[in-house]
């Protein structure tokens, strides 16, 4: 992955989030507060604008800029969580050199997951971002030897599976947790946006 591809990924996320904003908000209406699509759309639109005027030298710089912008534009839980994830991904990548390989990106994605779990205190099965992100990272790492496109495809498939599995879960974190057992039967909006992010990576690689 080079800087241009990193930018393409982020732009593809922004496009996907804009297209799916109503769907994310609809999922969030059922078990949350109906703002997930709107908030992520505002955030990634700001990220694209910020990257347009920035001149990132490394792949890591692209993701740190992405994360910092999300933290300052999104609010809610999604802003700090995705913002922290992208910042951690960016910081885990080499500070020098214009490209990163699949193994390096896999390790950085893992660092992003750790940062999300530290901040949100969520574990697998809580019906959160982690339920899509965790399986995606594991699949990415496993397929990393086959190159970035294969690893990205595997990650997207695992994220989709994790996302679908959240439907049966009882939420223990975030706003859906207030519904208790009534949260069962609804797909988690955060896990869904995480799938969009990994699907965007598969689409551009």
């Amino acid at each position: 992955m080079d800087v241009a591809l990193a930018r393409s990924w982020v732009t593809a996320i922004a496009t996907a989030v804009t297209e799916q904003a109503d769907y994310l908000t609809q999922l969030d209406s059922a078990i949350g507060d109906a703002d997930h699509g709107v908030n992520l759309n505002r955030g990634f639109t700001a990220v694209v604008a910020a990257l347009d005027t920035a001149d990132p030298r490394t792949v890591g710089d692209v993701f740190v800029k992405t994360g910092t912008t999300l933290v300052s534009k999104v609010g809610g839980a999604a802003g700090p969580l995705y913002g922290t994830a992208f910042r951690a991904i960016g910081k885990a990548l080499p500070a020098e050199g214009s490209t990163v390989d699949a193994a390096e990106l896999g390790a950085a994605l893992r660092a992003g997951l750790a940062a999300v779990q530290k901040l949100g205190a969520a574990v697998p099965g809580d019906k959160t971002i982690v339920d899509a992100y965790g399986p995606a990272v594991a699949a990415f790492e496993k397929a990393a030897d086959d190159g970035l496109p294969a690893a990205a495809r595997a990650a997207a498939e695992a994220a989709a599976e994790g996302m679908r599995a959240t439907t049966g879960l009882h939420a223990r974190k975030g706003r859906a947790s207030y519904l208790g057992p009534r949260s069962v039967g609804h797909q988690d909006p955060g896990a869904t946006s995480t799938w969009l992010i990994f699907q965007a990576l598969a689409d551009v690689t």
Partner: peptide, 11 residues
């Protein structure tokens, strides 16, 4: 004040 039902941002 943040956006509707959305917490404000750190800045």
């Amino acid at each position: 004040p943040g956006e509707v039902f959305t917490s404000p941002v750190p800045d």
